[in-house]
Deep mutational scan, measured.
Amino acid sequence: HAATELTPEQAAALKPYDRIVITGRFNAIGDAVSAVSRRADEEGAASFYVVDTSEFGNSGNWRVVADVYKA
């Protein structure tokens, strides 16, 4: 099962156990969220919340930071 994305309210009520950072070329924010979901799932997380997204220069590469939560 894939890790689910939390709302800001849900994330605020929970304590993350880790923070992950992924970088890559994403065509849309949805693609980045899917990549975070896969990584969170690999780490055994039940859910995640994207904290920050930023573009690296003009290369089209993105850096996505997310907190991950157990259950």
Rank of each mutant, 00 (worst) to 15 (best):
H1V: 10
H1L: 08
H1E: 06
H1N: 10
H1F: 11
H1R: 09
H1I: 08
A2W: 11
A2M: 13
A2H: 14
A2P: 10
A2K: 14
A2Q: 13
A2G: 14
A2N: 12
A2L: 12
A2C: 14
A3N: 03
A3I: 11
A3Y: 03
A3C: 08
T4I: 14
T4D: 06
T4C: 14
T4A: 05
E5D: 04
E5A: 10
E5Y: 06
L6P: 03
L6Q: 03
L6I: 05
L6W: 01
T7H: 04
P8F: 14
P8H: 13
P8R: 14
P8C: 13
E9A: 11
E9P: 07
E9N: 09
E9S: 10
Q10S: 05
Q10K: 06
Q10F: 05
Q10R: 07
Q10G: 06
Q10V: 08
A11Y: 05
A11L: 02
A11S: 05
A11R: 05
A12Q: 09
A12T: 08
A12C: 11
A12P: 02
A12S: 11
A13K: 14
A13V: 14
A13I: 13
A13H: 12
A13T: 13
A13D: 10
A13E: 11
A13C: 14
A13N: 12
A13G: 11
L14Y: 07
L14H: 09
L14G: 05
K15Q: 12
K15V: 14
K15R: 10
P16R: 04
P16K: 02
P16M: 03
P16G: 01
Y17T: 03
Y17C: 07
Y17R: 01
Y17W: 07
Y17V: 02
Y17G: 01
D18H: 11
D18P: 00
D18Q: 13
D18G: 15
D18L: 14
D18W: 08
D18C: 15
D18K: 15
D18S: 13
R19T: 06
R19G: 00
R19C: 08
R19D: 00
R19Y: 06
I20R: 00
I20E: 02
I20V: 06
V21I: 12
V21L: 03
V21Q: 05
V21C: 12
V21G: 01
V21W: 05
I22C: 06
I22K: 00
I22H: 01
I22M: 05
I22Y: 01
T23R: 06
T23Q: 08
T23P: 00
G24W: 04
G24T: 03
G24V: 07
G24C: 07
R25E: 09
R25Y: 13
R25N: 08
R25S: 12
R25I: 12
F26L: 02
F26H: 02
F26G: 02
F26A: 00
N27G: 11
N27D: 11
N27P: 08
A28L: 07
A28P: 04
A28C: 13
A28F: 09
A28D: 15
A28T: 15
I29G: 04
I29K: 11
I29P: 11
I29W: 13
G30H: 12
G30W: 12
G30D: 12
G30C: 13
D31Y: 05
D31L: 07
D31P: 03
A32M: 14
A32L: 12
A32G: 03
V33H: 08
V33F: 10
V33E: 05
V33Y: 10
V33S: 04
V33G: 03
S34R: 14
S34H: 13
S34Q: 13
S34K: 14
S34N: 13
S34W: 09
S34F: 10
A35L: 06
A35G: 02
A35Q: 06
A35W: 07
A35F: 07
V36K: 01
V36S: 02
V36E: 03
V36W: 00
V36Y: 02
S37Q: 15
S37R: 15
S37G: 15
S37C: 08
R38S: 09
R38A: 12
R39E: 04
R39T: 05
R39M: 08
R39Y: 10
R39H: 06
A40W: 03
A40S: 02
A40Q: 03
D41N: 14
D41I: 13
D41Y: 15
D41R: 15
E42F: 09
E42Q: 12
E42I: 10
E42K: 09
E43F: 14
E43S: 11
E43R: 08
E43Y: 15
G44K: 06
G44Q: 04
G44W: 04
G44D: 04
G44A: 03
A45T: 05
A45L: 05
A45S: 03
A45P: 02
A45G: 05
A46N: 13
A46L: 08
A46P: 05
S47T: 05
S47P: 02
S47A: 15
S47W: 15
S47D: 03
F48S: 01
F48I: 00
F48K: 02
F48T: 00
F48G: 01
F48W: 04
Y49P: 01
Y49M: 05
Y49Q: 01
Y49N: 03
Y49H: 07
V50Q: 03
V50R: 01
V50M: 07
V50L: 11
V50I: 15
V50N: 00
V50W: 02
V50Y: 02
V50D: 01
V50S: 01
V51T: 06
V51N: 02
V51W: 03
V51H: 02
D52C: 15
D52N: 12
D52G: 09
D52L: 12
D52Y: 14
D52V: 10
T53F: 15
T53M: 15
T53D: 02
T53S: 12
T53I: 15
T53K: 09
T53L: 15
T53H: 11
S54D: 06
S54W: 11
S54F: 15
S54E: 14
S54G: 08
E55V: 12
E55D: 07
E55R: 10
E55Q: 13
F56S: 09
F56T: 08
F56H: 08
F56E: 13
G57R: 06
G57V: 06
G57H: 08
G57W: 07
G57T: 06
G57N: 09
G57S: 09
N58L: 11
N58Y: 10
N58M: 11
N58F: 10
N58P: 13
S59Q: 10
S59I: 09
S59E: 13
G60W: 05
G60A: 05
G60S: 05
G60R: 05
G60E: 07
G60F: 04
N61D: 12
N61Y: 15
N61V: 15
N61F: 15
N61I: 15
W62F: 11
W62P: 00
R63L: 13
R63C: 12
R63T: 12
R63S: 07
V64R: 05
V64C: 05
V64L: 08
V65W: 04
V65Y: 05
V65N: 02
V65H: 01
V65E: 06
V65I: 12
A66W: 05
A66R: 00
A66V: 13
A66M: 08
A66T: 01
A66K: 01
A66L: 06
A66F: 15
D67S: 05
D67W: 14
D67V: 07
D67P: 00
D67A: 05
V68H: 00
V68I: 15
V68S: 01
Y69K: 03
Y69N: 00
Y69A: 01
Y69V: 01
K70M: 11
K70T: 08
K70D: 06
K70N: 07
A71M: 13
A71F: 12
A71H: 11
A71E: 13
